[in-house]
Amino acid sequence: MKYMMLIGGNEDGWAHLSQEEQDALYGRIGAWWGEEVAAGRIVDGHQLQPAATATTVRLDREGRPTITDGPFIEGKEMVGGYAILDVADLDAALAVASSWPAPDVLEVRPIMERG
């Protein structure tokens, strides 16, 4: 069963950390990611650039786009990356999310299977 794991957090959440602390956190995430990929639980995923680089495209009924600056969900918590998980069930997916090595927020959602 495949799940999308959205990795979010307060973008300022890491701001109070020193450069060394941030580097250490990135190091831990890198190592963790490597293990999850090696175990076959993460099949794809990326870190995203900050939400300030996002651009939103909204289409009306006639298909006309309106383009605006920023992510389409405004809030304190921003999506900072994602992973596609391939695991047995929700408990297994939640176990992966729960072992994420940084103080962030994660959303786990099943991917729609068409068949």
Binding site: M1, A88, D89, L90, D91, R109, P110
Partner: peptide
Amino acid sequence: RDARIPYRVPDGSE
């Protein structure tokens, strides 16, 4: 059903 919440008694640390 859709999120496949398993049907089990959690073990150990859970």
